[in-house]
Design a protein around this nucleic acid. Structure first.
Lengths: 259, 259
DNA sequence: GAGTGGATTTCGCAT
DNA sequence: ATGCGAAGTCCACTC
């Protein structure tokens, strides 16, 4: 139950006090954690009703709102950052409303009982670095096209064609054009269709033979059939090799989980 | 700083005490909120490093783990429910590890300072009801095909064809087959392609004229062009009418945001 | 503001 | 377990 500039913790507040505490914290753009019994309604792109129960409400300094049940990795209800927050006391309930426009939607959390409120001014400037995203995978293939096809010569990348952007565009040893679509995960039918559209578009603009190559760590079964029907190819990409290609100096153990 | 069977709140704990408190709470499958300065690493399908900063860690009773920065509606790092948790004290740091298999991945949160720990035994049996999902939209159209096309006679739904399942399959007043794809949001190019594949598949198996209908509240601009090229149609679906059709007895004001 | 594509997507359902 | 599509997806980026 200590209070200072950074942190405020309150337990078992009555509705009036909780309302004031939350309103003050919101005004100061603090992060809020509220634990208690609440019900939730959402109106917007869809609608939802959540009956009463004990949950954890998270309100962030940018206005993002999350309602978490005791289980499940995702919030049962939420509102993205940038929404407008309003706290009121109504019929002995604490009501927190989060509204936004485009799309117009609103989330209403109604607490009948508040167990704990934590209001904190959090300082977080630490960098976040994600490796082996699709972007990094592309960097690796661009730096070392042999990872994709032996003797592949890169012509360009992110080449604009009508349906979108071709990830990798090059020539093989027989001077056939190679149109490659990269996926960091298992490639499905959607990826095959995407590639097919690119290949079709390129064929209409060149007399050269065009190879359509889907490059991914694995290929979904349905995608395999479709690929064959459309005369496209699959190339298995070795994520571990790509990782080593991207991060030559780093600890090789970093990729041990990537199989 | 009260303690009872339901709720435990601790502030400014040293690492040793924090470690014990968390281990005990985890053993009791309580929900945990930890606020403090931490760094995070993730190894698995990808890899990530999050440098030191003040965050909110949420551990749920089913083992789901979420690391939230002060902004953004989504966790910066997470681990889905069902993973194995381990808490250790290491070089005066509090280390929490969450590991799972299939896929093999692990999340490591390392606290240098713990501001607050909240451990709560939450009871939540309230129902959650989501309305106007794609499934409900389909129900509405099936119950009242006129919402889609005047005089549409339903033949079947979720009809299996090679590329997948046709949402709505019927006959119009001219006895042309109607193949309709429903979307609850704005329909894009992917939806057009999906419909095109269904129509193509149906045409190969019937001598009847086949109309391909994309039914959605709105159509993306790029999708419009593609639709025209492929000889398909767009039908605007009135979500409000669908909602009223589904929920005849409910408060009409419930759908006021749905435009 | 809309449109497009990726995501450690997650989630659910059917195979 | 895998595959497939939907999601109140969120998110960043482009036009």
């Amino acid at each position: 139950m200590k209070t200072d500039g950074q942190l405020l913790v309150r337990e078992r507040l009555d509705v009036r006090a909780a309302c004031l505490t939350i309103a003050r914290a919101l005004a100061q753009h603090r992060c809020l954690v509220v634990v208690g019994d609440c019900s939730v309604e959402y109106h917007g792109r869809a609608r939802s009703v959540l009956e009463s129960g004990e949950r954890i409400l998270l309100i962030k300094s940018d206005g993002a709102v999350l309602v978490h049940r005791p289980t499940g990795s995702r919030p049962v209800n939420w509102q993205p950052s940038g929404c407008i927050l309003k706290t009121t006391e109504k019929d002995h309930f604490l009501v927190i409303e989060a509204t936004r426009r485009t799309p117009m939607e609103s989330l209403t959390v109604c607490f009948t009982r508040v167990e704990v409120i934590v209001a904190a001014e959090l300082t977080d400037v630490g960098g976040f670095y994600l490796h082996l995203s699709e972007e990094e995978l592309q960097r690796a293939v661009l730096a070392e096209p042999g990872l994709l096809l032996p003797d592949l010569r890169l012509v360009t990348y992110e080449k604009k064609v009508e349906p979108g952007f071709i990830d990798v565009y090059g020539l093989d040893s027989c001077n056939r054009l190679v149109v490659a679509e990269l996926k960091r995960g298992r490639a499905g039918r959607a990826a095959v269709l995407q590639l097919a559209r690119y290949v079709e578009s390129v064929r209409q603009s060149t007399p050269l033979v065009v190879r359509g190559v889907l490059a991914a760590p694995a290929l979904a079964k349905g995608a395999h059939t479709m690929l064959a029907q459309l005369g496209l190819e699959f190339v298995r990409v070795d994520l571990e090799k790509c990782a080593q290609s991207i991060l030559p100096g780093r600890d090789k153990k970093m990729v041990e989980f990537l199989t």
